[in-house]
Amino acid sequence: MNKDQIEGRVEQAKGKIKEAAGAVTGNESLKTRGHAQQAAGKVQAGYGDVKEDVKDGIKKTADRL
Rank of each mutant, 00 (worst) to 15 (best):
34 G>S: 01
27 N>S: 02
37 Q>K: 11
52 E>L: 11
49 D>P: 03
33 R>M: 08
18 K>N: 01
64 R>T: 15
47 Y>I: 14
34 G>Q: 00
39 A>D: 07
55 K>Q: 11
1 M>N: 12
55 K>S: 15
29 S>P: 04
43 V>P: 01
8 G>D: 02
16 K>P: 09
33 R>S: 14
47 Y>W: 07
54 V>N: 02
37 Q>N: 09
54 V>D: 05
2 N>D: 09
6 I>S: 06
22 G>S: 01
56 D>M: 14
24 V>C: 07
15 G>M: 02
7 E>N: 09
50 V>P: 04
15 G>V: 01
35 H>T: 12
9 R>F: 11
20 A>C: 11
10 V>I: 10
30 L>C: 01
7 E>M: 12
52 E>F: 11
37 Q>A: 12
60 K>R: 12
51 K>M: 09
11 E>F: 05
38 Q>F: 05
61 T>C: 10
10 V>H: 02
13 A>G: 03
29 S>Y: 05
26 G>H: 01
13 A>R: 14
58 I>N: 03
35 H>W: 07
60 K>N: 09
10 V>L: 07
50 V>C: 03
19 E>W: 00
28 E>W: 05
18 K>L: 03
36 A>Q: 08
30 L>R: 05
37 Q>R: 11
26 G>K: 01
62 A>H: 13
24 V>R: 09
47 Y>N: 11
8 G>W: 00
10 V>K: 06
52 E>S: 14
12 Q>T: 08
40 A>L: 06
24 V>T: 12
20 A>F: 12
34 G>E: 00
22 G>M: 00
32 T>A: 06
8 G>Q: 02
42 K>H: 14
20 A>V: 14
44 Q>D: 02
51 K>W: 02
7 E>F: 11
42 K>A: 15
48 G>H: 04
10 V>T: 06
29 S>D: 10
14 K>D: 13
14 K>H: 07
23 A>Q: 10
65 L>A: 15
49 D>Q: 13
30 L>E: 03
63 D>R: 12
54 V>Y: 02
64 R>Q: 15
54 V>P: 02
21 A>E: 15
15 G>E: 00
18 K>I: 00
1 M>C: 11
58 I>D: 05
40 A>W: 02
14 K>S: 08
65 L>N: 11
1 M>A: 10
11 E>G: 03
44 Q>H: 04
65 L>R: 11
21 A>M: 15
17 I>W: 03
28 E>I: 06
36 A>G: 00
50 V>G: 01
47 Y>R: 14
7 E>G: 02
51 K>N: 11
60 K>D: 09
29 S>T: 13
29 S>G: 10
35 H>K: 13
41 G>D: 00
65 L>Y: 15
61 T>A: 14
14 K>M: 13
53 D>K: 07
23 A>L: 10
29 S>I: 13
22 G>Y: 00
64 R>F: 09
5 Q>G: 10
59 K>H: 06
27 N>V: 00
38 Q>D: 06
22 G>W: 00
45 A>I: 03
14 K>W: 06
52 E>Y: 12
27 N>D: 08
42 K>M: 12
64 R>I: 15
13 A>H: 09
32 T>S: 05
13 A>I: 06
32 T>N: 05
18 K>M: 05
57 G>F: 03
61 T>M: 13
56 D>H: 13
20 A>S: 13
12 Q>P: 04
5 Q>S: 13
59 K>D: 06
6 I>N: 05
58 I>Y: 07
11 E>T: 03
47 Y>L: 10
12 Q>V: 10
57 G>H: 04
48 G>K: 04
